[in-house]
Amino acid sequence: MASREYLHPLGVRIWHWVHGLAIVLLVLTGFQLRFPDVFKLFGAFGDAVSVHNFFGFLVLFDYFLWLGFYLARRELAKQYLPTREDLMVGIPRQANYYFARYFFGDPPPFEPRPEAKFNSLQKTAYFGIMFVMLPLQIISGVLLWDLETFHPIIERLGGVRVVDAFHIILAYVFAAFLLVHLYLATMGHTFFSHFKAMIVGYEEVE
């Protein structure tokens, strides 16, 4: 029967929305920086750079908060590190659910619990995002923020263009991920249940 699980503590919820807002604004300002004469959402180019830098550092800051929070709770590996079973069984099962069984009304193969919030697909995706892509994006972002200071490092990495290329490609991946993330958020028990959970902390589960 339906029960309520306290999935998202207050700190996590605040972090999520602050981080989300920052990412959205980084994507939007990023588009303006990339297509300066097509999108002019944030006024002049220079203004867009300032906004972009501000939210970039906000993400740098919140990334360490997030890391510290989970390290302190010793939940990092449990929540985010995909196991062998996740990769071999969980992901295909979850994909099968999303792409086929879901449409027939089959129950989801996984229900979130406070000690295991993410299904195998989520776990793997978030692992890639939080431990590979976001750090890379933060590092490349910081390098591009002050080319003069970081010149020796940039040089070693193959030049500004290479660093910039990484940053841009990753930005597109983030933008695409954001779309899919928002969509999948509608796939809870009801259309808004995941959204609601991320606001109030409780999620209805079977």
């Binding site: 999303y98 263009r161 933008a175 695409a176 991920f177």
Partner: peptide
């Protein structure tokens, strides 16, 4: 040249939108 980044990036976005659109 480096504009490929945008071409590929936009393909990513199109991929995401297509997934959302088709699934939806």
């Amino acid at each position: 040249g480096y504009k490929w980044l945008d071409i590929i990036g936009i393909l990513f976005l199109i991929g995401g939108i297509s997934f959302v659109g088709l699934h939806g």
